[in-house]
Design a protein around this nucleic acid. Structure first.
Lengths: 156, 156
DNA sequence: TTCGTTGCAAAGCTTTTGCACGAAT
DNA sequence: ATTCGTGCAAAAGCTTTGCAACGAA
């Protein structure tokens, strides 16, 4: 089953990168981590991509853009990008972890066709509200929602 | 961050195993796959566990119960259990894929505390309804919903 | 008897780690 | 100058695969 990306890419406004940079800078300062060229390069690449990508693909596109960052460094920094709220893991049900950037995209959910692997993205205020209520029932403050809907596309 | 399981385990009614066995048998027949002792052993073990487990842990508990099934066979059969609707992958945000059985448990969602790793399970008809509507909007028939809510537990 | 299935071991990936060098503050 | 981060290469972990033997129908 091949995985196709079909929608959801929104143009990267320069403001998104600036916001991400600012957020990351603050995060690093707060955690007493250094602001290195490699971390910036990774951030740039993450923000430049609007699709779902694996670590390997991120490594490739870094290389393709002349930024050499070792795989080890990439792995060592992914968690900080996640913690800073810039990067998120995506589970597309294919046993491979992929990533997507969060800033500059609204909250969205994944709808995955089990037949073709086609992936749609969309959001829903109603879903968010219902989730909010469910979480609150257990005394939880919602930070992030991951929702994957697996199904079959109906013939129209 | 340690991962604790805190709720959601429901006692395994023998009927659940019977139903799973029946379902798996039909699935195997439909796919013209053989009904082997190893597949049955894996099914038993999957249905006997009420927690989230990794492939390695499943392999361990099989061994502990005197059923020797090689890792290769385990991997080769996981997908069929998924396809048959007996097993599901669980994404708990820790970069490790885990599994849980589906039959005998109602549809449920995971609420994960980002601080302690505590995991709650619950369901919500409202969430299901909202998801249904979202999916239908795109011409999708919902087969399975995976929802993870990450957040912080509020002090009471 | 006939194929599909299994176990083993090797191969292929993915991710982590130790160490010496290099860079940020 | 000091301390943290990086690259490299090795190690560790996870998943798949080729092949000969086995077992379900």
């Amino acid at each position: 089953m091949s995985i196709k990306k079909t929608s959801g890419a929104q143009p990267l406004k320069p403001a998104d990168f600036d916001e991400a940079l600012e957020r990351y800078r603050e995060y690093l300062k707060r955690k007493k981590l250094l602001f290195t060229r490699e971390r910036i390069a990774i951030l740039e690449e993450v923000m430049a991509r609007h699709d779902h990508f694996s670590v390997e693909e991120l490594h490739d596109s870094l290389k393709a853009n002349g930024k050499k960052v070792s795989r080890a460094t990439l792995y060592r920094n992914l968690d900080s990008l996640k913690e800073a709220g810039i990067l998120a893991e995506v589970d597309l049900g294919n046993r491979h972890i992929q990533y997507e950037h969060v800033l500059g995209h609204s909250q969205h959910f994944h709808i995955i066709c089990e037949e073709t692997g086609e992936i749609l993205e969309d959001d829903s205020v109603e879903v968010e509200k219902a989730v909010e209520i469910l979480a609150r029932k257990h005394g939880f403050e919602v930070a992030r929602i991951k929702l994957q809907i697996f199904g079959l596309r109906r013939r129209k």
